[in-house]
Computed example of a mutant assay.
Amino acid sequence: MRYELTDLTVFLAIADEGNVSKGAERCHLAPSSASLRIKNLEASVGVTLFKRHARGVVLTAAGQVMREHAKRCVAQLEQMHADLEPYSQGMTGHVTVFANNNAISTHLPDDLARFFMAYPSVRITLEERLSHDIVGAVVDGRAEIGVVALESEHPDLDFLPYRKDQLVLLTPNNHLLAKRDTISFASCLGQPFISLQSGAALHTFLMNHANALGGRLDVRVQVSGYRAIARLVASGAGIGIVPRTAIERSDRGRLAIVDLDEPWAIRDLRVCIPKHPSEKNVYRDKLVDILCRANARTASTVS
């Protein structure tokens, strides 16, 4: 198949405009040049991509398939250029970090800010994953550092203490559960919940625990962050479970915070790294050092 990236760009422009002339204009080409590129593209892939009519063109069924693939190809190339740009501007290193939602929403932003102050020319790719998936990614080399809330070990990884946190129940101040000092998770299951969106680590974690108890989480609203949970709970829309460190001071007066009487409510966040990394990355080591020093600062403050 012999066609160029420009041919795909022209094809997408014409498909978006529904008109050869307008699509050609977007690509700074003459209509005849654009038509020739489409003709050559159709010959190369062996299918007709457009149906011509008096007012312009429409995609054929094959053209619809081509459009979806072409959009992904062009988007991927744009991402490649975006990823390469920092190198042209003097980027000296890169670190890939996978972390659970708890760490990303609470502790990591401040710790990454300290890292960037020390190493401003380094870039970090940060992705949210479930803790079990993070361990697999670090073992496979898809992530250089993981931040997880797991007690289990892995023979190929070192686990270093990062932060301690606690999952707590949020209720409106006038809620029937608000006067409790502690509560079991099972006692919460009859209430409507405000939850993170499906796929978020905490959402999956709580759904699985509810299922293990033979119940289900009655999710009334799903939101994208802990602050939104707190605000909806304060409004009386339901109850929610969040890490204690995610509760902002401005929300504390409008909410009741009840300890969960569950062993899993205490969250020991840990940094996991390969015992024998395949490649040396000094900036990965520098970031791990900053994360572990954050744990030391927290421990000394508590003591």
Rank of each mutant, 00 (worst) to 15 (best):
Met1Pro: 06
Leu8Ala: 11
Thr9Ala: 13
Thr9Phe: 06
Asp16Trp: 08
Ser21Arg: 13
Ala24Met: 02
Ala24Ser: 11
Ala24Lys: 02
Glu25Tyr: 07
Glu25Arg: 11
Cys27Met: 15
Cys27Ser: 04
Ser32Gly: 06
Ser32Lys: 12
Ser32Asn: 13
Ser32Pro: 02
Ile38His: 12
Asn40Tyr: 11
Glu42Trp: 06
Ala43Thr: 14
Ser44Arg: 10
Val47Asn: 13
Ala54Val: 12
Gly56Ile: 08
Thr60Phe: 01
Gln64Asn: 14
Gln64His: 15
Gln64Phe: 12
Gln64Ile: 13
Glu68Trp: 00
Ala70Ile: 01
Cys73Thr: 13
Ala75Lys: 10
Gln76Pro: 00
Glu78His: 12
Asp83Cys: 12
Asp83Gly: 08
Asp83Glu: 14
Pro86Tyr: 06
Tyr87Met: 07
Gly90His: 14
Gly90Ile: 05
Met91Cys: 09
His94Thr: 11
Val95Ile: 08
Asn100Val: 10
Ile104Gln: 02
His107Arg: 10
Leu108Arg: 03
Leu108Trp: 01
Pro109Tyr: 14
Asp110Pro: 03
Phe115Val: 00
Phe115His: 06
Tyr119Asp: 00
Thr125Ala: 15
Leu126Arg: 07
Leu126Tyr: 01
Glu127Phe: 04
Glu128Gln: 14
Val135Leu: 03
Val135Thr: 13
Ala137Trp: 04
Gly146Ile: 00
Ala149Trp: 04
Ala149Asn: 09
Ala149His: 09
Ala149Phe: 06
Leu157Thr: 00
Pro161Asp: 08
Tyr162Lys: 00
Tyr162Asp: 01
Arg163Asp: 04
Gln166Arg: 15
Val168Leu: 02
Thr171Pro: 04
Asn173Ile: 15
His175Thr: 11
Lys179Gln: 10
Ser184Asp: 10
Ser187Leu: 09
Ser187Val: 11
Cys188Tyr: 07
Leu189Asp: 07
Leu189Trp: 00
Gln191Arg: 07
Gln191His: 10
Gln191Val: 01
Pro192His: 03
Pro192Met: 10
Ser195Arg: 02
Leu196Gly: 07
Gln197Gly: 10
Ser198Lys: 10
Gly199His: 03
Leu202Trp: 06
Leu213Asp: 02
Gly214Ile: 01
Gly214Arg: 06
Arg216Thr: 12
Leu217Ser: 01
Val219Ser: 12
Arg220Asp: 11
Gln222Cys: 09
Gln222Phe: 07
Gly225Ser: 15
Gly225Asp: 15
Tyr226Val: 05
Ala230Thr: 11
Val233Leu: 11
Gly240Ile: 09
Val242Pro: 01
Pro243Asn: 07
Thr245Gln: 12
Ala246Ser: 15
Arg249Tyr: 13
Ser250Tyr: 10
Asp251Gly: 05
Asp251Ser: 10
Ile257Cys: 05
Ile257Ser: 04
Val258Pro: 09
Asp259Lys: 14
Leu260Asn: 07
Glu262Ile: 02
Ala265His: 07
Ala265Asp: 03
Ile266Arg: 14
Ile266Asn: 14
Leu269Trp: 04
Leu269Ala: 03
Ile273Ala: 12
Pro274Val: 00
Pro274Ser: 02
Ser278Thr: 13
Lys280Leu: 11
Lys286Ile: 06
Leu287Arg: 05
Leu287Thr: 03
Asp289Leu: 08
Ile290Ala: 01
Ile290Gln: 01
Cys292Phe: 00
Ser303Gly: 12
Ser303Pro: 12
